[in-house]
Design a protein around this nucleic acid. Structure first.
Lengths: 364, 364
DNA sequence: CTGAAAGCGCTTACAG
DNA sequence: CTGAAAGCGCTTACAG
């Protein structure tokens, strides 16, 4: 043990192996391992000596690779998210992000399976979630908890399972989820408002917020977006005048009819704000009827919205980096399970301002 | 060998180990390994048989963890980038990104060392680069090649070293770099132009581009940004009128004096565009002299620029996700060296539009 | 309370 | 041309 100090200055940043520490302490590697993992059954004197040596050599960092290999443990993680299709265009990119992350972690001891539910069908959500919760061989869950009540009903099971679960995109409160990955809806509404404040034509200062009934019932984030929008104007004196209308959206013709009526009521409006990605339907109406507004702002870079951005009918889209949301949720679960990292309770997505010109540079 | 087919249907997505394949083929693991890595010295008949079996079981994917451990190889990578300080505020976040990535990959067989040069001192660049190139124990290099000539002079050495090198932030052409991570300067100029097009007050349509002499000599990307800016207006009819001035920047008083003169010449301007992050100096001038412009657009979320964004003196900043640039460059090198992945020749950074309202949600 | 041994899956000399 | 053995660093029964 006398030579330890000299040895240490020599090796500097080099990290010792368990075997080397064992040799310095005159014990076996097994004993060092027991101490490192607090597995007990070690004489106090031995423990003290070994810990001292570890401190002297500047701590011990296990070789994660060797650790993984020896444990030969594969962590199983389930992801539950809405199915991507024409009715749920947003979910294309979270899915891609999840798949990309799966590819990366699959070589390093974590297997991930994805289940999908229909965003507009509560039962499909409950059914898929129940299936996942029955799986006895699970180490972690990532959920886009679109349905509050159905998720709450299962919170007991989630907690009893005693495995970490992480919320993706929907920030439900009152759960023991280890983390949330998604956008601050309120803040994103403020960003949209600021765009009108900066860019709305002074001669046509009236802006219409369109709340689509069906969307509002489906997703609580929309209300937050509108709240944030209003909040900006309550804090900042502005030439912009805001009006709000609620219209139904059973089908396109009906939606277009309601929109048309609103535009007749507010003849002098210069812009519209949609707190959701349904703005493409309105853009279609404007195009067909050859109406030009100064500013059209909505959410999410879906394929339809891209089209109208490129035609200069939509001016700005608020993006939330959905690819990263999917990617990040899986990577975080990996860091937590495989590397034992503590996660932050919240990982806020950036609030992207997307225009025709920067559209193609973004990974959506 | 008869049972292979049945076995295969049973195991499905399970990936066989070398040992298992060896057993199926009645050879030793060593032989399978020789075939997998084309190391030669295997009878053709054996080779054929083993390859057939591998195909039947749906291919072989090595366990990267075991591979790393056995190879016991540590890849050494050098990073050369500008030193972050008050004069080079941009480089704070690439550095942070590099450090984050280093933390991640250090557990998986790659060590990274960073060297810094003074962005405004060619010699420091040459010196540090030469130091790196002398290192015989190097597997890859990441460079922010700020100085064209000095980099060109060393391209022979770079190529002879026969190790991959990747360009960060500065897209030099005519090199054998395996990849580039950074922003499309031309495209970013177009984005800035579009912001003026959308938001510039109709009553004050004149916009001033400020080219700072010293910056222009230092960094070729600035010219590209201005080109892109002009290009947008040449393609899009707009009410915006663009003027260009070139002013020197030996020191702040001189810079402010030149700026003041320009503002006297163009009394009716409504906005200014800075193709660099030096916009904070102009914002300072406007603040002190109590001048309010409708639109001030510049580059990069430095601490100074943040301040003026929050004071509503700067309207928009174009961001290039510098953290991600640093992070990504290291991760890509890791994928290339450790996983043997082929890289794309270019990884374009997004072109972020930053305002007071979305500022805090972005990782810069 | 402690050590020796075997094993995770792959690689690499070495012997034949 | 091929197999047996040892090793990467850590973990885990097992024996004492």
């Amino acid at each position: 043990m006398k030579n330890v100090a000299i040895f240490v200055t020599y090796i500097k940043s080099y990290i010792l192996t368990i075997k080397e520490i064992a040799r310095l302490a005159d014990v076996s590697p097994g004993t060092v391992d027991r101490i490192l993992h607090n597995r007990g059954g070690v004489a106090e004197s031995t423990q003290k000596r070994v810990i001292e040596i570890i401190e002297q050599v500047g701590g011990f960092k296990p070789n994660v690779i060797a650790r993984n290999l020896a444990l030969n443990k594969i962590y199983h993680v389930a992801v539950l998210m809405p199915l991507f299709n024409a009715a749920s265009p947003f979910w294309e990119y979270p899915k891609k992000g999840v798949l990309k992350a799966i590819e990366e972690v699959s070589s390093y001891g974590m297997k991930v399976s994805i289940s999908y539910f229909d965003e507009f069908n509560v039962d499909s959500y409950s059914k898929e979630l129940d299936k996942i919760l029955k799986n006895k061989n699970l180490d972690g869950i990532i959920i886009a908890p679109h349905f509050v009540k159905e998720t709450q009903e299962r919170s007991d099971i989630l907690n009893k399972l005693n495995i970490p679960y992480l919320f993706l995109n929907v920030p439900l409160k009152g759960f023991n989820n280890i983390s949330f990955v998604g956008q601050d809806s309120f803040g994103s509404g403020r960003v949209a408002a600021q765009l009108f404040h900066i860019a709305q034509n002074i001669e046509k200062p009236r802006v219409l917020i369109i709340e689509v009934l069906e969307d509002f019932n489906n997703y609580y984030g929309l209300d937050q977006r509108v709240q944030g929008f209003m909040n900006f104007f309550s804090e900042n004196p502005s030439h912009v005048k805001v009006e709000k209308v609620r219209i139904p959206n059973k089908n396109i013709p009906q939606f277009h009819e309601s929109l048309g009526k609103s535009l007749e009521v507010y003849k002098d409006i210069g812009g519209m704000f949609f707190p959701s990605n349904i703005i493409d339907k309105a853009a279609q109406y404007l195009e067909v009827n050859n109406i030009k507004l100064d500013l059209m702002v909505g959410y999410d870079v879906t394929n339809e919205n891209k089209k109208f951005l490129n035609k200069d009918i939509i001016t700005f889209l608020i993006g939330q980096e959905p690819f990263q949301q999917g990617y990040k949720s899986v990577r975080l679960m990996f860091e937590h399970l495989v590397h034992g990292e503590d996660l932050n309770t919240v990982y806020m997505s950036p609030i992207h301002i997307i225009t025709k010109e920067n559209l193609e540079y973004h990974m959506h």
